[in-house]
Design a binder for these strands. Structure first.
Length: 508
RNA sequence: AGCGGGGUAGAGCAAUUGGCAGCUCGUCUGGCUCAUAACCAGAAGGUUCCCGGUUCGAGUCCGGGCCCCGCAACCA
């Protein structure tokens, strides 16, 4: 058997101090569409996600909820893993940073950075407000006082911390950016990170005193400290591949220095961590860097930033429950800009659904299959040549997918579906039947066209796409890669079709 | 302060080197009956943020102004 090319994609790991956010749903649906697309190209895909489970906030949240920390993280990890079913995700790996192997990998990663001379113990100075019982940054202070407790003195605390020598990596990062012109997509985020690194990097603290923050991975050979969550969490991208023991899988999927292979998907708030900090950490550990970081925007709600006080927070489980998995996937991918912030609005959601899924693809499927059943006994007619310019369609489709431009991908599919509606109006098959004309060629063209629509939708709304295919009598087991499926005429003449329930019921 | 992006129809966005201002949704009218009251055709809807300049011609180039957004490090 031909060896499949490896493809590796990972989301960021959501921090489980709150329930899943619609913004993370966007990230993981985008990653899922990419993963499914790559599988259809014939690649062997490892698609990683998981949960980031250490750190002070989680430690406090568990205490606050009055449950022990293991119970807390188990409950939350499950809440995130439920998204798999709810959003029909195809991830292969779900890594929890509390996982034993991950802990071991993070420690080994630390050791290597340390052995290479990029970790140093220093005095860490912080400003501490006793009123809040929190460390404060300068930007949080007002005339050297905590804005919440202006009558209390800010305490200066000194403690020993380990620091990562981030400052040593400015040049290497800039060089990598210069050599990899598409390292960060989209370009405006790439410029942002370049500007950030060009300003010069400052070393950052990567440990906390265990007595103050017990919930973390122990620093190797120093039981007084635990790792700062970022340092620990980022290592998941490679620990999930079995690093450091499974060198083969690591090299195959993460790639090598000459041929990096990892694609990371992250939100704009994560730009720095993913495309600079983590890359410097990889350099420090003498490991290959990522191939590419795709950065999506945020979702605002009804034109405003989501906030609990405004009461406009969108809960992914609620909208999935209301509209269905594919409707939500379709909106996230098709109605929001891939590279910028987008708006979640109920009105726009319902208009988008009605226009493109109910009136568009759903209705088209229904009318074509009805005609085949009514006029041709449910049997696919005589093969015809391609008059639908499918080659052109597929070329554009691939181009858009390569750029993670899901909005354009869906626009292309909608236009293609519309062209089938136009043909039906022009050819008036019902009239031709009355006149005793043979329309089996026309019906072949339409059913084969519909097959192309369904294939193109497989990465976007898999469940509905599969339904269309099975109504066309196509078995999913027999599906080939895109390069074969995009050919005109794969639908067999004489195949039996069977119309099903409405794919996208009208909203009432 | 600075660096970067932007202001185009009711909404979301397009317009290679300056050359009739387009697309999707929504709205209105007509047609059709295979279809999920769906579909198809057509129409209405623009001072392209403002002022000035260059040009035969400016959304696009130049000068000035107003407004919005991102970045401006340790907040997972």
């Amino acid at each position: 058997m031909e060896k499949k090319k490896p493809f590796y994609i990972t989301t960021t790991l959501p921090y489980i101090n709150a329930n899943p956010h619609i913004g993370f749903a966007l990230e993981i649906v985008q990653a899922d569409a990419i993963a499914r697309y790559q599988r259809l190209l014939g690649k062997e895909v490892i698609f990683n996600t998981g949960t980031d489970e250490h750190g002070l906030k989680i430690y406090r949240k568990a205490k606050q909820e009055g449950i022990d920390i293991q119970t807390y993280i188990d409950i939350y990890a499950k809440k995130f893993d439920f998204l798999k079913k709810a959003l029909n995700l195809s991830y292969t790996n779900f890594i929890r940073t509390s996982n034993e192997h991950h802990v071991h990998a993070a420690q080994e990663f630390w050791r290597r950075c340390d052995a290479n001379g990029f970790i140093e113990k220093r005095i860490y100075q912080a400003k501490y407000c006793v009123g809040c019982e929190l460390e404060k940054t300068d930007s949080e202070l007002n005339y050297l006082k905590c804005s919440l407790h202006p009558n209390m003195e800010i305490e200066l605390i000194n403690e020993e911390n380990y620091f990562f020598l981030f400052s040593k990596f400015s040049e290497k990062l800039l060089q990598y950016y210069a050599e990899n012109l598409e390292f960060v997509i989209p370009n405006h985020r790439f410029n942002e990170i370049k500007a950030f690194v060009e300003r010069g990097l400052t070393d950052f603290s990567i440990s906390r005193l265990k007595e103050k923050m017990p919930w973390g991975i122990a620093v190797p050979d120093d039981s007084d400290h635990v790792m700062y969550v970022w340092f620990d969490a980022l290592v998941n991208y490679i620990s999930t591949l079995g690093w450091p023991e499974d060198e083969k899988q690591f090299e195959t999927f993460w790639g090598t220095k000459d041929e990096p292979n990892a694609l990371q998907v992250a939100g704009k708030d994560n730009l720095r961590q993913q495309s600079a900090m983590w890359q410097a950490m990889l350099l420090a550990a003498d490991l290959p860097m990522s191939k590419q970081v795709f950065v999506h925007g945020f979702i605002i709600s009804e034109g405003q930033k989501m906030s609990k006080s405004l009461g406009n927070v969108v809960d992914p489980y609620v909208v999935i429950d209301k509209y269905g998995t594919d409707a939500v996937r379709f909106y996230l991918l098709g109605a929001l800009p891939s590279y910028d912030d987008g708006d979640w609005s109920t009105q726009r959601f319902e208009e988008f659904y009605t226009a493109h899924l109910a009136n568009g693809i759903g209705n088209l499927t229904s009318r074509i299959l009805t005609m085949v059943e009514k006029y041709d006994d449910g049997v696919v007619g005589n093969k015809t040549n391609d008059t639908l310019r499918t080659t052109d369609f597929w070329d554009k489709y691939n181009e858009a997918f390569t750029k993670f431009d899901f909005e354009t991908v869906i626009g292309l599919v909608n236009n293609f579906a519309r062209s089938l509606d136009e043909i039906i109006s022009e050819e008036k098959p019902w009239k031709k039947v009355k006149n005793g004309e043979d329309i089996s060629g026309l019906l072949y063209q339409l059913t084969e066209g519909l097959r192309h629509v369904a294939i193109a939708l497989l990465p976007i709304i898999p469940e509905s796409a599969e339904k269309i295919l099975s109504e066309l009598g196509i078995s999913l087991d027999g599906l080939e890669t895109f390069d074969k499926e995009r050919q005109w005429g794969r639908l067999k003449q004489g195949a039996k079709v069977e119309k099903g329930e409405a794919l996208f019921p009208r909203l009432v």
